[in-house]
């Protein structure tokens, strides 16, 4: 039975029946066994995130995003300024897949062994729907940001961050930056759902990811556009440091096998 809803209904009926017959303990035991089997089946997929390269990739992407904004502010005016920004944006886009590939090819496979995943149709559907939703949100956000930027700075200014701004942080700006920080912190938890039990120091990273963005929003003057570059830079650095530490730990604890093991 593949339909998850029908499977859930069947499970609930089984619980009811077991309750009537006084066999809830046995049912829980069976459910636990099934959950353990599920955990084993998921282990190969967990290697994609437990070696730290995914975090490094995400951190690199965030750093590149932040640096692309700063490059337009701090680099001297020339045709190269725009190209540098575009190059950094391109790096941000490819950082994650490149680091994931590096992690699989050079970190996991030499130590754990070779494995590949089955192509799943549902995954492609999810990716296409995800891309469509992301495109709609991005276009809407870009439209909104352009409007905001137009209000916040004169036309001649190269970037919003370079413009003199209101010294008092608005409540909306604080709320936006806190939400942005919280979303990234939740994402960090998702990255480290498995490894956070082992690496307790990652809880500090999580706390920093939650607490620092609103603090920056409170300390720095300006609206969301002015505060988001330093916040993005900070988030990128946290991901990068956390990923690097995880990678070092993984390399130390997973030695390549002896040559005759294959």
């Amino acid at each position: 039975m593949k339909n998850p809803i029908a499977r859930y209904i069947q499970f609930v009926r089984k619980i009811e029946q077991a309750k009537r017959e006084g066999r809830t303990g046995e049912l829980i035991k069976a459910a636990r066994e099934n959950a353990e089997i599920q955990t084993i089946t998921m282990r190969p997929r967990q290697y994609a995130v437990t070696n730290g390269t995914a975090e490094i990739g995400w951190g690199t992407a965030w750093l590149c995003f932040a640096l692309s904004i700063y490059s337009s502010v701090f680099l001297p005016a020339s045709p190269w300024r725009g190209r540098m920004g575009m190059l950094l944006l391109l790096c941000a886009c490819v950082a994650m897949p490149v680091w994931m590939w590096v992690g699989k090819k050079f970190v996991v496979q030499p130590r754990i062994g070779y494995f590949s995943f089955r192509p799943e149709k549902s995954r492609w559907i999810g990716m296409i729907v995800g891309l469509a939703v992301a495109a709609v949100i991005s276009i809407a956000m870009a439209h909104w940001l352009v409007q905001k930027a137009g209000q916040a700075m004169p036309v001649s200014a190269p970037h919003a961050a370079a413009v003199a701004v209101d010294k008092n942080p608005s409540r909306l700006s604080l709320l936006q930056i806190s939400g942005y920080g919280l979303l990234n912190a939740i994402l960090y938890l998702m990255f480290n759902a498995v490894s956070i039990k082992e690496h307790r120091w990652k809880r500090i990273c999580f706390a920093l990811l939650v607490a620092v963005p609103p603090t920056i929003g409170f300390l720095l003057p300006g609206n969301y556009l002015h505060v988001s570059p330093p916040v993005t830079l900070f988030q990128g650095l946290i991901y990068l440091i956390s990923g690097a530490a995880t990678l070092v730990w993984f390399l130390r604890h997973h030695q390549p096998p002896a040559p005759d093991a294959g």
């Binding site: 089997i37 089946t41 590949s116 093991a261």
Partner: peptide, 22 residues
């Protein structure tokens, strides 16, 4: 064998070394 089959069910294919390590 349950562990072996469970691991294999999560992947398309793997090598002997992977199962040995896991």
């Amino acid at each position: 064998r349950l562990i072996i089959v469970a691991l294999l069910s999560g992947v398309k294919e793997c090598d002997f070394q992977f199962l040995l390590a896991e």
